[in-house]
């Protein structure tokens, strides 16, 4: 039979061994918890980075090219109160965008403006008593923004001050690449076929429009420069 001291030592050793096992178990549990927490934080951070990178970031510029971008923006635009401020060497023109009746056209314009496509462009066409036209990338009418869209067209023609998308004669009605025009002639605007996406109206700066329209031309090409330095969007 073991002595009382020996039994006491055996019990003490068993207790120490149990405590050691429990401590090791606790440590493993703590490490696992920390690891899982680290993984969760990592996944969260990666997700946030991905969302920001793919377009969820509030400061990300809208790219001009994908038509889906215009569509996405069109879906998010409020039905009123969105304006575009066009600044150039002859003054400032403010456009009230018709997000209600032409959401695709307005969305396209907002996408291109936010993408900087209109910065450094110009008014490249002046058709007397009819329209001024501009907005080609770099001011070069042979250039285009990628992935043009087909937007809504009006039913009641183009009163003076209407802003609409320019298109070629063989393009489908409502086609919007990047160029746009502002109507300056009442009769001509009233008889223009309803083939052009009318996405806005001049809110202020019609005097600037008329100043541009009065520039000297060769054919319909202005012989002195009328620039579009920047287009900024408000109310979105």
């Amino acid at each position: 039979m073991p002595s009382a001291d020996k039994r006491q030592r055996q019990k003490e050793n068993a207790r120490l061994a149990r405590e050691a096992r429990e401590a090791a178990l606790k440590k493993r549990r703590r490490n696992r918890t920390l690891r899982n927490a680290a993984i969760a934080v990592g996944v969260f951070v990666v997700a946030i980075l991905l969302i920001t990178w793919l377009g969820g970031g509030s400061k990300k510029k809208v790219v001009a090219s994908p038509s889906t971008t215009s569509t996405t923006i069109a879906a998010k635009l409020p039905l009123s109160g969105v304006t575009a401020t066009i600044k150039g060497n002859l003054g400032t023109i403010v456009i009230a965008l018709d997000t209600k009746n032409d959401p695709k056209g307005a969305g396209r314009f907002v996408a291109l403006a936010n993408g900087g496509v209109y910065n450094g462009s110009s008014w490249s066409r002046i058709a007397k008593d009819f329209v001024i036209q501009g907005g080609a990338p770099g001011g070069d009418p042979s250039q285009s923004a990628a992935n043009q869209v087909v937007a809504e067209v009006p039913k009641d023609h183009y009163p003076v001050g209407s802003v609409a998308a320019a298109k070629g004669p063989n393009d489908a009605p409502g086609t919007f690449d990047s160029q746009f025009f502002i109507v300056t002639g009442a009769q001509q605007g009233a008889t223009l076929p309803n083939d052009y996406a009318r996405f806005g109206t001049v809110k202020s700066g019609m005097d600037v429009v008329n100043k541009i329209a009065a520039l000297p031309v060769s054919g319909e090409t202005p012989t002195s420069k009328a620039t579009i330095d920047s287009v900024t969007i408000s109310g979105v």
Binding site: S124, R125, Q133, P141, S142, S144, A166, K167, G168, P169, N170, D171, D177, Q179, G219, E220, T221
Partner: peptide
Amino acid sequence: AAAFEHPDRA
């Protein structure tokens, strides 16, 4: 005639 709307496309 297409000078203002992409003559190259024509």
